[in-house]
Design a protein around this nucleic acid. Structure first.
Lengths: 196, 196
DNA sequence: TTTCAAAACTAACAGATGTTAGTAATTGTA
DNA sequence: TACAATTACTAACATCTGTTAGTTTTGAAA
């Protein structure tokens, strides 16, 4: 036979995906060319197509990897047997975690998903919508149980999701503060507020 | 002479800028073509250049308009003679206001500024950095005065700025909740937290 | 050493892009 | 009505885009 590929841990396909995420994050999906990506991988643009299907596939792959992770976490949290505040805390901590350790993919899926096309675009939108809705339901249950103030649940969820999506600034902060300390700060501010 | 331009309220240049902001918001700067913009204005692409200098100018104009607004507001707030919580509340309310009534420009300046080039890019980055820093200083003063919990001020500011930048979702919520109610929700959640 | 698939290369495509040149139409003013 | 500036148009440019075709190189298995 031949060239069974010595996967020195990571296949070339995975390397391409990783570098693509990096470039999409830095410059945006549209502003990143296949020639630029290829150069950073160390091959010619045409050679990329021995490993991937095309530019769109790269974006689709990144977006759904992230969306699936968050959906799975939501499944876990919903089936937790605990009070509502703890569930929200778990979600916040997971968002922080993903944004710290997986920030390139998370950032791209959050800011560049609009560049997908149907049918993936519709499917992705639906996953986002569903995630928000499930998050909102948790907040609403907290309100009706008296654990949470009577605020608009949609607004609260929107604040949370966006508060947490500041990926490009995370890195700067994580270098000063530990990831755990960051999680604690987030939970404190979002759940108990600023006022002493 | 000739054609002194009857400015039926808005000049064509302003119309072009407004439609550009709309398209940049919907599809992104890179994904919006001059031909598409021209079609929406109702003229040919080449005719745009009788009114504007080029595509980059459109983005630059939008970004700095917004940046200047926020900088000016920060000047006002810094010179307010009030407690720190009130200053932060004033900033939050201004962010909500801008995001509701000026959401296209705000969104574009927040998500598409990376597409600028030097020297504008550097200048814009510096304005953002400065704004964050001044916001952080306010929070830190609040902490040292005992008005605010001992949290990491950088994290707090980052949460605030991003919580507030959820422009595309704002509109959906504003249709259900009034703008004032939205401001109140934001202030409550961010300053006093979720917990009852 | 031969073999053959994997993966690299060169060359080129067809289409889209921002922009310019040159020209014709429009329109308020003289 | 005639002038002249403004603004629209058509045509074209040079460049960049993602991708394909066809070919050569590579490297492990036989």
């Amino acid at each position: 036979m031949a060239k069974i590929k010595t996967p020195d841990q990571t296949s070339k396909r995975e390397i391409i995906h990783a570098i693509a995420a990096e470039l999409f994050r830095e410059k945006g999906f549209r502003a990143t060319s296949m020639r630029e990506l290829a150069a950073k991988v160390g091959i010619e643009a045409a050679s990329l197509y021995n490993h991937i299907e095309g530019k769109n596939e790269l974006l689709i792959s990144i977006c759904f990897k992230v969306a699936n992770n968050f959906t799975q976490k939501m499944n876990e949290v919903e089936s937790m047997d605990s009070d509502i505040i703890s569930k929200i805390e778990a979600l916040i901590r997971y968002h922080v975690y993903e944004n710290v350790y997986n920030y390139k993919d998370v950032y791209v899926s959050d800011r560049e998903w609009r560049n997908m096309e149907d049918p993936e675009l519709s499917k992705y939108r639906e996953m986002r919508r569903s995630y928000r809705k499930r998050f909102t339901s948790i907040v609403e249950k907290g309100i009706s149980r008296g654990e949470i103030k009577k605020i608009d649940a949609n607004t609260a969820v929107m604040i949370f999701l966006n508060a947490i999506a500041a990926v490009d600034q995370w890195q700067r902060i994580v270098n000063k503060v530990s990831s755990e300390e960051l999680e604690n700060n987030m939970v404190t501010i979002l759940i108990d507020g600023l006022r002493k």
